[in-house]
Amino acid sequence: MEKYFDVAYIVTSIPLLLPYIEITFWITVIAAFWGTILGLLFAVAKLSPYQVLQKIAAAYTTALRCTPSIVLLFMSYYGIPLVLSIFNISLDAVDKSVFVLIAFSLQFSNNMCEAFRTAYEAVDPGQMEAAYTIGLTQLQAYWHIVFPQALVVALPNIENALISLIKEGALAYTIGLIDLTGKANLIIAGNYNSHALEVYLSLAFIYWMISLGVQKVFYRIAHIFSKGKRLLLS
């Protein structure tokens, strides 16, 4: 082991990798934004009384649940331009980050859809009635009563979805996007594929710290809201 393992590579690669947190960050934030909107739409569809909408939403979530991220990523990157080329629309000038964002927005929307649905179902329908009796409109009742409680229930799932989004984002290297993992692979290629283990260890360390940070933030948020929950229940 000592013949190859050189701690110096771990230390020197960290500062090279750190600037690329920015790319990973933006990919995560934008995919989370669109994924949340899509997820909300599909959750509404799933909970709606219309059979057609329910069926469409169910098919959508099943398909996404069963697709490995890497397959989704490649289908987005190679498939979308191919489909649009039938209509003579060329996407040659479109940056690859767009396809990465599409793939991961879809993936995230699926997790969010489930999070929203289970959270909504967890809120006691009696709460709505109670809200009406004190004179709130339907919108007010959702906004003041249902939403805060559902959010508390949904938080752990949202946290999981976000962390898995950050982690799955690592696969964007496979289509050549230079994010954290992409940069790690460039560093390794720059060393002629040597000392890969050391670089991957620092990469893992950075991801680990990011995930722990996200967990911290969610812990805080949950703390704030669970206060509200206790008050609302009493």
Binding site: E22, D95, I178
Partner: peptide, 18 residues
């Protein structure tokens, strides 16, 4: 924050894009 992020992101990514 998320909206701002969405707006700024376009620049952020294209700036760093290859």
């Amino acid at each position: 924050g998320i909206f701002m992020a969405g707006i700024v992101a376009g620049c952020g990514l294209s700036k760093t894009a290859d």
